[in-house]
Amino acid sequence: MIDFVLLGAAAFLAGLVDAVVGGGGLIQLPALFSAFPREIPATLLGTNKLASVFGTTAAALNYAKRVKVHWSTVAPAAGAAFALSFAGAYTVSKVSADFVRVLLPIVLFAVAVYTFRKKDLGSVHAPVHSGMAEKYFAVGIGGAIGFYDGFFGPGTGSFLIFLFVRFFGFDFLSASAAAKVVNVACNVAALMWFGYSGMLLVQLGLLMALCQIAGSLVGTRLALKHGTGFVRKLFLVVVSVLILKTGYDAFTKGSISL
């Protein structure tokens, strides 16, 4: 019983953090692995996706009510992410992800340094692409992140926010809203894969989904209330924690996909 209470609390906090800047897997997956140390890892990853897809969808809907979602960019990115996440999931069954595990903390460190040094990055919403160029960039970025999410996964939401800010000129709040839509596409594709493979604890996943939804609603309200400056600061905090976690995983080889 205590394990379920702790998992519910972890899912709530994961939903809150994920709704603002991504990285909720930092909280939820370790809790699952701690509560079920003998369970097949893929089953816990599938259960995590089941809970996450509800929380991320709730966050996306909540953002859409208050923040303009730029569908000309988001829709092609989400479509490409959905398709390529299947390819990533298939590839990881054939190829080791160890090289990504080692590279990830380095890439995250570069993202953190760039964001910290560019004080005005994401402070205003000033889209830099339009027409077909916008769609090509969106498909390329959505596809790349979708493949990464299916292949490995940690920090997907944070990467999406950074890319929407850096390459599309979104402010952090608009980028967070856009990232949720693309993340839903990734999660749905992964969930279909795990469901087809029978790697789900359905009842537990649905229980955690309720807690994720509650956390995501709190998280989106905090983001909308405090604005893009709050999102930027929390983004840097979460990316810093991701650097430490993925760096530790890279050199101990005891990692799990977040």
Rank of each mutant, 00 (worst) to 15 (best):
M1W: 08
I2E: 14
V5G: 14
G8L: 14
A10Q: 09
G15N: 10
Q28L: 13
L29V: 13
P30L: 03
P30G: 01
L32G: 02
L32T: 04
P41S: 09
P41V: 02
A51W: 00
T56F: 12
T57E: 00
N62A: 15
K65V: 12
R66F: 01
R66I: 00
V69F: 05
H70I: 07
P76Q: 05
P76C: 10
A78T: 07
A78D: 04
G79Q: 10
G79P: 11
A81L: 09
F82N: 08
A83N: 07
F86L: 00
F86M: 02
V92C: 04
A97L: 09
L104D: 06
V107H: 03
L108Y: 01
L108C: 09
F109D: 01
A110S: 11
V111F: 11
A112R: 06
L121R: 09
S123E: 15
V124Q: 15
V124R: 14
H129K: 13
S130H: 10
Y136K: 14
F137Q: 06
A138Q: 10
G142D: 03
G143N: 09
G143R: 00
L163D: 02
F164Q: 01
D171A: 13
D171W: 00
A175V: 11
A177H: 01
V181R: 02
V182H: 01
V184P: 00
A189E: 00
F194N: 03
L204A: 11
L206I: 15
A209S: 14
G215S: 15
S216V: 07
L217E: 07
V218N: 03
G219C: 05
R221P: 02
A223E: 01
L224K: 13
G227D: 04
G227S: 05
L234T: 08
V239F: 07
I243M: 08
F251H: 09
S257Y: 01
